[in-house]
Write a protein that binds this DNA or RNA. Structure first.
Lengths: 227, 227
DNA sequence: ACATGATATATCAGATCGATATATCGATGC
DNA sequence: GCATCGATATATCGATCTGATATATCATGT
């Protein structure tokens, strides 16, 4: 799942690890604060598989070799300790910048179009795919939305079954279940509006279909209408 | 986190592993389908720490010893293979029934009242604590609700900052962020109603304050009003 | 007779998280 | 001048959680 996020970001721009974390946190809001213990191993994984290429960004000293992960880092560290304010003024520290490869691009397409694994943090998985939905073919995009809708319909049925069958809930648990039901309904109606606007867009292909505006039926100015 | 869920369930009734999974799935809806790879190690962990005691439920053959986990299970299996339709008619298979101890009860109180770890699946963590909120002292309960509200306020601020600062979102990402904002607002208003009704309940302590009804301000009959 | 699915426990590899270590740099304060 | 703090940046560790798989019993359907 993190692989998809990383490859998605790198498919548009090159980044170093720390900045990938920031983008995921500040831009998307998914992966609230991705752990370094996930991020750096994931980058190593992707580099080993050839999906990305990481180059030590120092200015001088190209260091073109891939660097075997558990190698003599001390050498590079020492070589960098003396250098300061090189060609790229203001670089804080040795950063390893990652670029996506053709292999990585294919892996990204595959991950994005793949059948979503059920149960594995479904909301996050969907949100991530939606954020990169522009890279999907129109009918694959529609499939993504409709599969998510089906998930939510099943969730709603489960919620309703809990309310109906249960009954030995205390007031807190009951409120929790009811709120969950409400939220699921809200999500479904959101999905419905996304699906409808997607179908409309696909029904009228004559105009330029890149960079569509105002998906979801709510104008950008109509915020904060509820509550 | 799973420890809290398990101890919470066991604080009210004894269960075997498989049934704990079902309760978490069917009753609460949290931990959609907890993995056995989490559940059984967690039970072993809790048993080792003395929080729970697991007894092989066979009917005859008391098997009072705690059984050292990686022991001679084959013996019990063989002894059980012949037996069928014993005293407790209908028991499918050898089940290990877990009971909470006094140590476990103290651990549960501690976990429930503990400061919630931020960032670690906050929604799930809060939902779990709310489901067991009746075991909390009134002011601790209020603290739980207000800490959650603070979390959501911070989340809302982050959502709004994303909408304001960003701008280079495509339509799908923009819709995602807007929906996230809406959902957070909805959650906050829910929390507000929970907090208000909790304060009201605590302001009027003369009547019996166990088993309070209709927390959250929505009558049980007022379902499905939105959409 | 045979397959399927529910019940029940257990283990494994892999992914992720929180904590921690290390190091550089800018700003803030005294 | 200097010390401390927070942001930047990479890396590793242990613990936990997930999905997959294995094993076994029993009921139900075909």
């Amino acid at each position: 799942m993190l692989d998809l996020a990383i490859l998605g970001l790198l498919s548009e721009h090159e980044f170093h690890g720390y900045e990938i974390r920031k983008r995921l946190r500040d831009d998307l809001g998914l992966f609230a604060n991705i752990s370094f213990g996930s991020l750096y191993p994931a980058l190593s994984r992707l580099e080993l598989s050839g999906a990305v290429i990481g180059t030590e960004s120092v200015g001088a000293a190209p260091a073109s070799a891939p660097i075997p992960l558990t190698g003599s880092l001390g050498g590079e560290r020492a070589a960098m300790r003396s250098r300061r304010a090189g060609t790229t003024r203001g670089t804080k520290r040795s950063r390893k910048v990652y670029r996506i490869t053709d292999t990585g691009r294919r892996a990204f397409e595959g991950l994005l179009a793949a059948e979503e694994p059920v149960g594995t943090d479904e909301a996050r998985s969907f949100g991530l795919r939606l954020a990169f939905a522009r890279h999907l073919a129109p009918q694959a995009r529609l499939g993504l939305l409709e599969r998510r809708r089906d998930q939510l319909i099943r969730r709603l049925a489960a919620d309703r079954a809990r309310v109906a069958a249960g009954g030995d809930f205390d007031s807190y648990t009951r409120s929790l279940v009811e709120h969950s039901t409400d939220t699921t309904q809200h999500d479904i109606s959101w999905l419905d509006s996304l699906i409808e606007s997607e179908k409309q867009k696909q029904a009228t292909p004559p105009t330029d279909n890149r960079s569509a505006r105002t998906v979801g039926g709510r104008s950008p100015a109509a915020k904060g209408t509820e509550l």
